[in-house]
Design a protein around this nucleic acid. Structure first.
Lengths: 158, 158
DNA sequence: CTATAGTCTATAGAACAAATAGACTATATT
DNA sequence: AATATAGTCTATTTGTTCTATAGACTATAG
């Protein structure tokens, strides 16, 4: 499960993406609209600034705004920046990789292989989901609820 | 990332799967072979027993053993039992679903859609990975390192 | 120069993860 | 029945991370 921080980061970015190229947005407005605790949001926005996704303007008429095109910001980047590794076990991770202390030979470890492949599938999927894509999907869902073309064919429901 | 507990559960089960139908296995042997803290492992084995995957025999010659066929125990069941929800955000989960407090209308929320689809992809993938499958893959990797047929075509590396 | 709005430092509290200790109970074998 | 073996239960400890908040500080527009 993503941390609240990672989830809030996504909501905040979507909020800014909706107002892309419309000038700075106040922290308190984002907080109110997205129901994010204001002080917590502040720290998230500073991280987003350090990551180079947003910029801020101080003083009256100030606020935050996206400095990358919504099509260039994807869920994989956000998720990894705020939540860390995508892999489910340390030896299946790219960042925060740790060699496995439990198996004798990692090169023939089926657990590693399975979880590494899953990590790759997840990374691919999340990389395709940009803020722009999310806004498009939202519009599409509003026109025709439950009828969007999925990014990838989901399998059977459990 | 899976908790240590979930990871240890997987290692313990694989260990028992290797010795399927060969009588009870001592806790201390599993602990030693898989490098799992013994007392921690005990609590995991009790959970596995409550889940109906293993049984135990007390006294001399006792130990733990699988009571389901290795082909019938899959990673999705283990992961969910020990690590909880597969979805990355609460509104995308099946178990531990929570309606989203952040969007106005969940039925047209693209974030929910995206993360729900990802959850389904993950669930499908993990469901296909049984203990038996892991042992087969291991054998196959040993014969021909790095040449197994993946369960699903992994995408590009990042 | 002053109201506005973002920035920085520090910290509190809760929840959770990981591990350990030790007494207790059941069973096989002699 | 006695005894050693081996799993079971209860409790507690320790440490970390997550989430949130408070308050003083700094930069800027007008």
């Amino acid at each position: 499960m993503l941390s609240k921080k990672a989830q809030y980061a996504i909501y905040a970015l979507i909020n800014l993406a909706r107002k892309y190229n419309q000038g700075p947005v106040l922290i308190k407005n984002i907080a109110k609209e997205e129901k994010i605790p204001r002080k917590f949001l502040e720290s998230i926005l500073i991280e987003l600034k350090n990551l180079g996704l947003v910029n801020s303007k101080k003083g009256k008429g100030g606020g935050y705004y996206l400095i990358q095109h919504p099509g260039d910001i994807n869920m994989m980047f956000i998720t990894r920046s705020f939540n860390g590794a995508l892999g489910l076990i340390p030896c299946a991770c790219i960042i925060s990789y740790e060699s496995c202390a439990h198996c004798k030979d990692e090169s023939v470890c089926s657990i590693k292989k399975v979880f590494r492949d899953l990590r790759d599938i997840t990374a691919d999927y999340l990389e395709k989901v940009s803020l722009e894509k999310l806004l498009e999907m939202e519009a599409s869902l509003k026109r025709n609820p439950g009828r969007t073309i999925p990014l990838q064919e989901p399998g059977s429901q459990e």
